[in-house]
């Protein structure tokens, strides 16, 4: 079961790579980047998961040592939180560039933009 979960996550990553490489529409390329981010974030969180683990939040009246015996790994979560927010800014900048390209060339299609250049 665990292997199936990992392999499906890798497959999701491949869908993102496919959209990035094989598609010519700028909107689809941006969506490919988004899917790629989902897959990588999901993989990192999966690696830190502990079976029947609790969130790494200290309940009242419990010591950190008791929590450390049951909690899921907090370090990948902290780093993925950074990655999620940076993913948003990457998407926003890509959307801005795509909008500017549309204003100049009137299309989202990379082939047309290449042909119109010069």
């Amino acid at each position: 079961m665990g292997i199936a979960i990992y392999m499906l996550t890798f497959l999701l990553l491949l869908i993102g790579v496919y959209a990035l490489v094989a598609k010519k529409n700028l909107v689809r390329i941006i969506m490919g980047i988004a899917i790629l981010e989902y897959a990588v974030n999901l993989l990192l969180v999966l690696v830190g998961y502990r079976r029947d683990g609790t969130p790494p939040i200290l309940p009242r009246g419990q010591t950190a040592a008791e929590l450390a015996a049951r909690a899921v790994d907090p370090l990948p979560q902290a780093l993925v939180l950074t990655s999620i927010v940076i993913g948003l800014s990457v998407t926003a900048l890509a959307v801005a560039l795509a909008v500017r390209l549309y204003d100049k060339y009137g299309t989202f299609d990379m082939n047309d933009i290449r042909n119109l250049r010069g």
Binding site: G53, P55, P56, A71, I84
Partner: peptide, 18 residues
Amino acid sequence: LLGAPDLAFPQVLVEIIT
């Protein structure tokens, strides 16, 4: 489900903005 509520809420927020 993976015990990461700190990630679930920002993910929803980021998703709406995206």
